[in-house]
Amino acid sequence: MFQEPINIVITGVGGQGNVLAAQVIAVSAVEAGYLVSSGETSGLAQRGGPVMTHVRVFCRQNYGPLVPHGRATVVIGFEPLETMRVLFDYGNRGTVVISNDRPSYPLGCLQCEDSYPEVSLIKDGIKNMVQQSFFIPASELAAQAGTSLAANMVMTGCLAGTGLLPFGKEFFRSTIDKLFPNKLKELNLKAFELGFDQVFQQVV
C-alpha cells in the first residue's frame, strides 16, 4: 500500500512537452488500475512561458486536480530554474526532485535585466533543500535517442525509475506505444529507457 495521493508536479517551459509527459503518466496510472486527477497551467499555449502540470495518483478516495502547496511527492523539472521555482511553492524536505540540467533563459535574463543563477548553484541549492534529487542531462540523452525534443520521455523514464509509483514500467511502455504515432514510437521508448536507467541505477 502506498500513501495516497501521490502528488506529481511537472514543470518546465512551453514547448518542452510537459503536458504530454503528464498525459503519459496519467494514462499509465489508469491502465494500471489507479485513479488520477490532473490539472494543467499552460500559460498562453506559447513557447517561452512557464508551464506546470499536476498529476495525482490514488485509489481510495477522489482528489481534485491541484496539489496543495508544500505537498508534492515528486517534482519533475524540465528546466532547472523552473524546478527551483516550483519547489519553493510545492516542495517540502521529503519531496523527491528530478530535474533536467539544461537551462532555457528567460528574456529578462537574456536582456541582462535579471541574472540566471549558475546551474551548479541551483543544483547545490536543491540538494540542500530536499533529501533526494536527481539531475539528468535529459536533452542530451534525448538527442542520443534521436531528438532533443524527446527530453520529456527521458524525464518520464526517470520518474518510473524512482520506483515511487505503485506500478511498473511496462504500463508506461504500453502507453507510449499507444499514444505516439508509429514513426515516433521507437524513439520515445528509447528516450524513456535511457531516463529509466539513469535513475534506476542510482536508486537500486
Partner: peptide
C-alpha cells in the same frame, strides 16, 4: 528568482 515572461 528571475521571472519568466511569455515569448513569441
Amino acid at each position: 528568482l528571475p521571472s519568466r515572461e511569455l515569448a513569441l
